[in-house]
Design a protein around this nucleic acid. Structure first.
Lengths: 103, 103
DNA sequence: TTGACATATCGGGAATTATCGATATAATAA
DNA sequence: TTATTATATCGATAATTCCCGATATGTCAA
């Protein structure tokens, strides 16, 4: 994984909708319905489910997920037609730690 | 103190120069020359000193300090003609904690 | 292959941010 | 009072971000 750029991470976090997505992904079972047989916890949540909850278009959702991914906060796994997004807990803790110790 | 709005805090942090200022203010003695008799550690650093280090105008510096202040990350103390800015360590830890536990 | 669906990307208009110079305000000094 | 210095605010332009609809791409099913 590439080193987190604090500025880029903060830019990614400085939007209500993206923050929302990250919070939902923290506990997928609590926020998303079951999706086929794939384990929600293992691979994450697919774009359609996130789009459904977020009150925005598929296009916007996809772009927001890209922003979060480029910031290193989530990562994607493609399985068949679906792309599942999941939080990178280490990266999130790393940013907390950066603020706590280095900022 | 008012409750920190995560989004507003992250917006404040999503700029290289403002991040820089916060880092400098972490250890004022290491980054700023002594200023008159006022204790750097006690009240903070005045706008002119920050402007001098930042490669930007006084206007921009002042506005960035406002942004950081509105986000709750620093606070100002006016003494005579000078306004001294100092980090709010609690607020900074609070944001680290928000990311670590709630985000 | 063709069709259908999931996701990504492109192009754009509106809103916000970055940054400046000019000017206003506040406090002290003369 | 007036002049000087420190900081804040105003007005503006360029750059960036927000968010959309349209379209492209990738994958499976028939």
């Amino acid at each position: 994984m590439k080193p987190l750029e604090p500025t880029e991470v903060f830019k990614a976090l400085s939007n209500e909708a993206r923050l929302q997505i990250l919070e939902w992904l923290k506990d997928p079972q609590a926020h998303f319905g079951p999706q086929g047989g794939v384990e929600l916890i293992e691979v994450g949540v697919c774009v359609s489910q996130i789009t459904a909850k977020l009150n925005m278009t598929q296009s916007t959702t996809s772009q927001y997920l890209s922003v979060l991914q480029r910031a290193g906060l989530i990562h994607a796994t493609r399985i068949g037609k679906w792309t599942y997004y999941k939080r990178d807990e280490e990266a999130i803790q790393a940013i907390a730690s950066y603020i706590q110790k280095d900022l």
